Simulated scan of single mutants.
Amino acid sequence: MGAARVPRRVIAYVRAGAALCDLGVTPVAVYGSGHDGDVLDPAKEGGLRAAAVTYLGPGRGLDEALLRELRPDVIVDVTYDGKSPYALDEAVVERLGVPLVALSVGNELTLPEILDRFGELAVSLGAAADAGTAGADAGTAALDAGAGVPETRAGVPGAGAGAEGDPGGRESVSRAGLRAAEDALRKAADRSALTVLALSGAGPDQVHLARPLAWPELAHLAELGVRLVDPGPGPGANWLTGDWGRAAELRPDLVLFDSRAHATAPDEVLAGVRSTPWNPETPPSPAAYARFFHELAEALTA
């Protein structure tokens, strides 16, 4: 049975909230992850600060009384394992009695599939007001049925929501922008012979080197022709952890560096290598990835 109304008061993990904001749904508030502090990370904020969205601090330490005062209709998180919300204690949501949707951003999905799911969710939450009602009804029914559980049980709006809910509004414009950015990056990669290494600095003595195929957006870059460097064998599914000497040995022409506040910038320890920022938690929206693809295209051809 569907919900009586479209959920309007959304609280979200900052990555999900920034994506929804891009897609036309402004959250009441957002919370961070265990990496985040008491101030919203500028690398993650997207349009949230401009939209005056309240930041609540790290999700694992949220004040339940404050959450109740905010009266959320739904909480939106992400999941990397397909089982548990990434940034919020599921038991808190269960005690609140509020529906939880945790959309997968793991490598079992392609980047286009991830973007489609967030687009469908945004429609179900009221984005694209001129859209047909079938997709929104399906989305609210899923939310209503899945209180307190992640995506694998809470459900995700069906594919029809994206098809019926986008008759030329904001989502269509941003999709066109994404296609243009992909074309620009494809052309830049075709003209450039630069090799690219994605990494996250973990202090002066340690760095996490990204395995390209473990990241949907990096795998998509490879599909567009970017010459990504694989760090090679060793432990770790998403990252190979080593020292900065290991990064230097790979001899990348360009470094995609983790631009989040907790990460170490490579220019502090990896001298003489060109670099450009990469947010491993880029909001899953066409607009956010279009910006990233344009920035990388410029870095490849500079």
Score class of each variant (00 low, 15 high):
residue 264 T to S: 14
residue 216 P to F: 09
residue 237 A to W: 11
residue 162 G to H: 13
residue 72 P to Y: 12
residue 235 P to H: 10
residue 251 R to S: 04
residue 53 V to I: 06
residue 120 E to W: 14
residue 295 E to A: 02
residue 79 T to H: 04
residue 123 V to R: 13
residue 258 D to A: 04
residue 25 V to R: 10
residue 182 E to S: 15
residue 195 T to H: 03
residue 147 A to C: 14
residue 290 A to T: 06
residue 295 E to M: 00
residue 12 A to E: 02
residue 177 G to H: 13
residue 142 A to V: 14
residue 179 R to T: 14
residue 73 D to P: 07
residue 52 A to C: 12
residue 214 A to F: 06
residue 26 T to C: 04
residue 222 A to D: 14
residue 70 L to W: 07
residue 188 A to F: 00
residue 110 T to V: 06
residue 95 R to C: 12
residue 273 V to N: 01
residue 173 V to F: 11
residue 141 A to P: 09
residue 226 V to W: 01
residue 133 T to N: 09
residue 269 V to M: 03
residue 104 S to R: 11
residue 265 A to C: 03
residue 171 E to H: 15
residue 298 E to P: 01
residue 77 D to A: 03
residue 152 T to G: 12
residue 165 G to P: 10
residue 110 T to E: 14
residue 78 V to R: 08
residue 35 H to K: 13
residue 221 L to E: 05
residue 243 D to K: 08
residue 44 K to F: 05
residue 184 A to K: 15
residue 155 G to L: 11
residue 163 A to D: 13
residue 2 G to F: 07
residue 148 G to Q: 12
residue 227 R to N: 02
residue 293 F to P: 01
residue 29 A to D: 05
residue 143 L to R: 05
residue 113 E to W: 02
residue 135 G to N: 10
residue 105 V to L: 11
residue 143 L to V: 13
residue 149 V to C: 13
residue 67 L to T: 09
residue 127 A to V: 02
residue 79 T to D: 04
residue 235 P to C: 05
residue 20 L to C: 10
residue 30 V to K: 07
residue 200 S to D: 02
residue 61 G to N: 12
residue 107 N to A: 15
residue 300 L to G: 01
residue 209 L to E: 01
residue 62 L to K: 02
residue 6 V to N: 01
residue 117 R to Q: 13
residue 118 F to Q: 03
residue 251 R to N: 02
residue 209 L to D: 00
residue 208 H to R: 13
residue 280 P to N: 01
residue 150 P to Q: 09
residue 38 D to M: 12
residue 110 T to D: 15
residue 81 D to N: 14
